[in-house]
């Protein structure tokens, strides 16, 4: 199939960017979206032009590296799907497709479609972990966890940290990402000792990084490739309220 692409091109962090049009032809409907961009880049390299920079790694939907806003939707039109798992059979010959980077002040563009997501690492470093003595691995059943807690923790831990929630949020909020980690650890016995300092530290870092607040529109959840629900934000709000009251 033949497609017209409009892609955000920006040569560097400080450079001014703009949408640039490209035509790609002979795209198989079995190609993934990223493979379609690979074809475009081979074409650009053959022409001696600068290929389009975009993030990708595992290309099997689990690493969280790919990060494209396709026609205004983080990870494209298909629900519960990362960009790398989106296939060209979703498109028709002659389609015009807009491709932009995640847009957030906290995620500055490095080049073209690649953004700096270090702010997420800082949020994790501010409390999204447990402190545990090292040594040999504990026995599997040494610390019992109720089935429903294990399931809820596992669902929250499915977050791959891609940042689609921020990209989709009308307020550029990182709340779903932060809440997924808070909810994951809040359901586990290992997460209890640092539960309150975790939530206060992470929220302070989230705000300092320049993410916006949550208005509960649910766009984050709808865009999340791992379908993490708004219930994790509820858990975050609850834990924050208790931690703030206790620390006061």
């Amino acid at each position: 199939m033949k497609l017209k692409l409009r892609i955000w091109r920006q040569s560097g962090a400080e450079a001014k960017g703009r949408m640039v049009e490209y035509i790609v032809d002979g795209i198989s409907e079995d190609a993934s979206f990223l493979e379609m961009l690979d074809v475009l880049n081979e074409q650009l390299i053959a022409e001696g032009a600068d290929p389009v920079a975009f993030d990708h790694d595992c290309r099997e939907g689990i690493c969280g590296a790919c990060s494209l806003v396709i026609d205004g939707q983080a990870h494209g039109p298909q629900a519960a799907t990362t960009t790398c798992q989106l296939h060209m059979r979703k498109y028709r010959d002659g389609d015009v497709i807009d491709v932009e980077p995640w847009r957030a002040g906290a995620f500055p563009v490095i080049k073209d479609l690649v953004v700096d997501r270090t702010a997420f690492d800082r949020i994790i470093a501010a409390g999204g972990y447990i402190s545990a003595p090292t040594g040999t691995a504990p026995d599997a059943h040494a610390t019992p966890v109720a089935k429903q807690d294990a399931d809820a923790a596992f669902a929250a831990a499915a977050c791959i940290g891609c940042g689609a929630c921020v990209a989709a949020c009308p307020n550029g909020s990182g709340m779903l990402f932060m809440a997924a980690k808070v909810a994951h650890l809040a359901r586990m016995p290992q997460g209890q000792p640092e539960r309150h300092t975790r939530v206060l530290g992470m929220v302070a870092e989230h705000d300092a990084s320049g993410f916006g607040g949550c208005t509960n529109t649910g766009e984050c959840s709808a865009a999340c490739p791992k379908e993490i629900g708004l219930d994790v934000i509820g858990q975050l709000n609850r834990d924050f309220r208790k931690a703030a009251a206790k620390a006061a």
Partner: peptide, 14 residues
């Protein structure tokens, strides 16, 4: 804060 959190807007709307 929300407006400052997205200094560059998307070209295409959904």
């Amino acid at each position: 804060r929300a407006l400052a959190a997205r200094p560059v807007r998307y070209a295409s709307k959904k």
